[in-house]
Write a protein that binds this DNA or RNA. Structure first.
Lengths: 349, 349
DNA sequence: GTGAAAGCGCTAACAG
DNA sequence: CTGTTAGCGCTTTCAC
């Protein structure tokens, strides 16, 4: 095993263990020559500091937790991936916590034991120095517990009261999408909205819907309830929403704005099934920047999820390492319209 | 913060810290009444054991590492997700390690500093008790380092010398897929094979290709090189492979077996672009069990990735907790043919 | 700039 | 079954 401790390094370098610790931690109060000797000794012995021992003595574990509602969906894992890169390069490990969604119909006193254990035990074990929350809706109690930890916490994608949050301007995202369609000449634009079954406060859907409404209003167009349908954030959800929106063959919208790329894929499927050509008969635009959109020719608003994770991670690093030099923190999250084959001017325009 | 230590619990329960430790760890040598008192005291104080202190003292961290080549691709994160469920329920946390693929063209002495750090530092920090490797090809040196850790290691999906591996029988998977097509009456079946740019030993592609060859041979059909094309494991890869396979309009296969579902999506795209109807003009079958296959009507061999992760995790638990009762370990990984709209008898059959 | 020494909070012999 | 007693391997005052 790893029988090389700080002690052996100290002996070989001819210094005390305290100095080894300081040298390897990069503390300034070590002479250059000593530091060099220590580093060489450490390398020669293959010494690596023990995470547990260092953690116990210093109180810092050099690992951060990432809490996500889903562990295998593209958007969430992309955020995780971006955060991982940044944190790992800064010497931190990532521990993942699965925060199971509280389904809306569960709110009336239905308990989720795993989620409870997460907040009442796992997080209290001092395994991580900070937490990154991805698209999570927390109860007041849960937020209190988080604050009680006294550790840096940052949220991504869904604003939480009292927690610094990084999210794209969902209103602007939606407006950009709808405006793109308007500029192409569309006047009858439908919205395939996303609903999360666990979305306690409906932030993302509400904002995107608001952006849709606003853009239409600014163009002097009415918002009709028959032009709005909802599904969950999957292709299936997009498909069913589209089937509703396109049900009446004599009165179809000329374009659909889908709340996510995966939903947009479902819309494309529905269009195909109804023998509607895209973009001739129907324009479709999504949101996210999902990799399959390229092949499918889907116009989308790329919100760079990995970059969101990276930004959240950098924000945590600023708090974790106040002395370090940090590049100025990003405040606005970038998003960008990517125009592909699925949108064009309406035929009747 | 968490100022409640084992000491306070001991006081409140009127026992020694040792007894608290034993009681809370579920050791058998504690009387029922004492255990009850301790548990109550712990709950009342909101005591949770410190991961670092416990880890340092016991040598076990109650966390396991998951090493993956990609952090945001469906197959890998699904494996991770399945492993997480099992390990978390057993009281373990998951730490993720990104093992960046060594690209094939890099093998000639090109170094990947992040990957080196992973094996030379991160893993030596004693942050995890065991490791789960997902679809990884390791160098001999890396395997040696892993073994030197003296910790349980299990690999998933790609067999590694000297490491217990759980993987579906890729030969059988491929044979099942091709046999399905043969039974429908197809005699001209192409293979859109997957290649990983980092796949040092080509296990999965080679086995699937072998299954394809075998099934054809057993049916007395020739294997033609013009009926095999390769791409990476993405939709794009499937698309380009299909475009090659379908290039000659006068001599097209009646069915394509794609090495993954995402590749199969690309094949479907290609077919559509060439005005080939699926399944009338072309049958398509994939492998994986990707969730979008349902909507797309893709026939596939579901290999239940989350279940693979769970099985790997259980194997680790058996080694981590020899005393516990464990359900008999799975040896064969399940896979299953899911017949949907994308396969049918060839028109000319 | 460096060393000595006192823990960090818990676990695991070893007694009893 | 339970208490006493050493550490686990490192970090960090506090001196020098």
């Amino acid at each position: 095993m790893n029988n090389v401790g700080i002690r052996k390094v100290a002996e070989l370098a001819g210094v005390s263990t305290a100095t080894v610790s300081r040298a390897l931690a990069g503390k300034p109060s070590v002479s250059a020559s000593t530091r060099a000797r220590v580093e060489e000794a450490a390398k020669e012995l293959g010494y690596v500091v023990s995470a547990t021992a260092s953690g116990l003595a210093s109180g810092r574990t050099r690992s951060v937790g990432v809490m996500m509602p889903f562990l295998n969906r593209w958007f969430f894992t992309s955020v995780m991936s971006g955060a991982h890169r940044v944190l790992n390069d800064a010497g931190y490990d990532l521990t993942i916590y699965h925060c199971e969604p509280n389904r809306l119909d569960d709110t009336q006193g239905v308990h989720n034991p795993r989620r409870e254990r997460l907040f009442q035990e796992s997080l209290l074990r001092h395994r991580v120095d900070a937490l990154l929350l991805v698209t999570l809706s927390l109860t007041t109690t849960e937020r209190d517990r988080l604050h009680a930890l006294g550790k840096p916490v940052v949220a991504i994608d869904r604003p939480q009261p009292d927690i610094p949050t990084f999210a794209v301007d969902n209103l602007a995202v939606a407006k950009t999408a709808v405006t793109h369609l308007l500029e192409l000449g569309h006047r009858d634009i439908a919205y395939a909205g996303g609903v999360l079954p666990y979305d306690l406060d409906f932030q993302v859907p509400v904002l995107r819907r608001a952006g849709y409404d606003t853009a239409l209003a600014e163009a002097g167009l009415p918002v009709r309830s028959t032009r709005v349908a909802e599904g969950d954030f999957t292709s299936q959800g997009g498909y069913s929403a589209a089937m509703k929106l396109l049900a009446d063959p004599h009165h179809r919208p000329t374009a659909i704005f889908a709340a996510s790329d995966e939903m947009a894929y479902g819309v494309l499927m529905a269009a195909r099934e109804l023998d509607l050509r895209v973009p001739e008969d129907l324009s479709v635009i999504g949101v996210d920047g999902h990799p399959m959109g390229d092949l499918l020719g889907l116009t989308t608003i790329d919100q760079h999820p990995a970059e969101q994770g990276a930004i959240g991670a950098r924000a945590l690093l600023v708090e974790l390492e106040p002395d370090e030099q940090h590049p100025p923190a990003a405040t606005r999250l970038p998003f960008e319209l990517i125009t592909r084959r699925s949108t064009a001017a309406p035929r009747t325009a």
